[in-house]
C-alpha cells in the first residue's frame, strides 16, 4: 500500500509537469488549430536558461526560475513571429504551419547542439535530497515542489481564462477569430499572448524537468509525451490536457514500478493509438459542433 501511494505521488508529480507542457500545446491548438511542435524546443531552452542562470549568473533559485520562464515566453513569441505569423498573414493551409513548426523544432535543437554542445548537464542541488517521511511513505521534496508549482500555475491560468476580460477574449478568439475581430478584439495580440503564456509554462516545466532529470538538447523530444497527453485528453481542451497528463504520469510510474520501465513508453503510445481509434476527439474534446 505504501509503495502504491508513493507511486501515485510520483505519478502526480511527473503528470503535473506533463500538464504544464500539454496546456501550452492545447492553448495554441485551440487558437490556431495546429500542433506547435516547436513547443518542445522552447521547453528544452527553458531548461537551459534556468541552468545557466543558476550556474553562470549565480542567481538565487526563485529568480532563476522566474527568469527562465520569462526568457522562454520571449522565445515562444519570437518563434511565432518568425515561423508562423508570415504564414498566418497569407492564410496558408494548416499543413504549412506544422512543417514550419517542425523546422523550428529541428532548428532549436541543432542550434543548442552547435553552440552549447550535446553533453548532458545536471542542475545544481537546490533542495535537500533527503525525502520527507510521512508514516511509511517517502516523498521527494522536489516532487512535492514540482506538484505545488504546477498546480499553482494551472490554477492561475484557469483564473485568467475564466475570470478576466482578456481571458474571455482568448476564449472568444479560440472559438471564432472572425467574430472576435468584430468585437474589437485584436486577435494578433491575443495570439502573441497565447504564445507568451505557453512559453512561460514551458519555461517552468523545462526547469522542473531539468531538475528532476538532466538537461540535454534532445530533451524537447520528451514533450512528445505531453503531446500524447494533450491528444488523449482532447486537443484544445485545457481540463482534458490536465487530466490526460495526470493519467499518463500515474500510468507511467505504476507501469515502471510494478512491471518494467522498458514497457513504459510502449504502453503510453499504445494508449494514444487506442484513444485515437475509439474516441478520436479525446476524453474531453469537442464531440460535436454546437447547435446551429
Amino acid at each position: 500500500m505504501a509503495q502504491f501511494l508513493q507511486q501515485m505521488i510520483n505519478g502526480l508529480s511527473i503528470g503535473s509537469v506533463y500538464a504544464l507542457m500539454a496546456v501550452g500545446y492545447s492553448l495554441v491548438y485551440s487558437i490556431m488549430s495546429f500542433s506547435n511542435f516547436a513547443h518542445g524546443g522552447v521547453i528544452m531552452l527553458g531548461s537551459y536558461f534556468g541552468f545557466y542562470l543558476l550556474t553562470l549568473a549565480h542567481w538565487a533559485f526563485p529568480a532563476a526560475f522566474v527568469g527562465a520562464a520569462l526568457c522562454s515566453a520571449g522565445l515562444a513569441v519570437i518563434v511565432e513571429r518568425v515561423a508562423y505569423r508570415p504564414l498566418r498573414l497569407r492564410n496558408a493551409p494548416f499543413l504549412y504551419f506544422i512543417i514550419s513548426a517542425m523546422g523550428a523544432s529541428i532548428f532549436l535543437e541543432n542550434f543548442v547542439v552547435a553552440t552549447i554542445g550535446p553533453t548532458f548537464r545536471t542542475y545544481p542541488t537546490v533542495l535537500p535530497r533527503a525525502p520527507i517521511e510521512i508514516g511509511s511513505v517517502y516523498i521527494g521534496r522536489l516532487d512535492i515542489m514540482i506538484f505545488i508549482i504546477s498546480a499553482v500555475c494551472l490554477a492561475l491560468l484557469v483564473y485568467f481564462l475564466d475570470r478576466t476580460k482578456v481571458g474571455k477574449a482568448v476564449q472568444a478568439t479560440a472559438h471564432n477569430a472572425r467574430a472576435a475581430k468584430l468585437m474589437g478584439i485584436n486577435t494578433d495580440l491575443v495570439i502573441t499572448l497565447v504564445f507568451a503564456i505557453g512559453g512561460l509554462l514551458a519555461g517552468v516545466a523545462g526547469v522542473m524537468f531539468g531538475m528532476k532529470y538532466t538537461v540535454y538538447p534532445q530533451m524537447g523530444g520528451i514533450t512528445i509525451k505531453s503531446f500524447i497527453a494533450a491528444v488523449f485528453g482532447g486537443l484544445g481542451s485545457l481540463p482534458g490536457a490536465v487530466i490526460g497528463s495526470l493519467i499518463l504520469g500515474i500510468m507511467e510510474t505504476l507501469i515502471s514500478g510494478y512491471f518494467s520501465s522498458q514497457f513504459r513508453d510502449l504502453i503510453s503510445f499504445t494508449l494514444l493509438i487506442a484513444v485515437l481509434v475509439f474516441r478520436p476527439m479525446g476524453l474531453m474534446g469537442k464531440a460535436t459542433e454546437e447547435k446551429a
Binding site: H175, A180, I185, E290
Partner: peptide
C-alpha cells in the same frame, strides 16, 4: 457566430 462555449452574459460583455 455566437461564442457558443461562453455564457450569454459573457457574449454580451465581449
Amino acid at each position: 457566430l455566437v461564442f457558443a462555449n461562453l455564457t450569454v452574459l459573457d457574449n454580451l460583455m465581449l
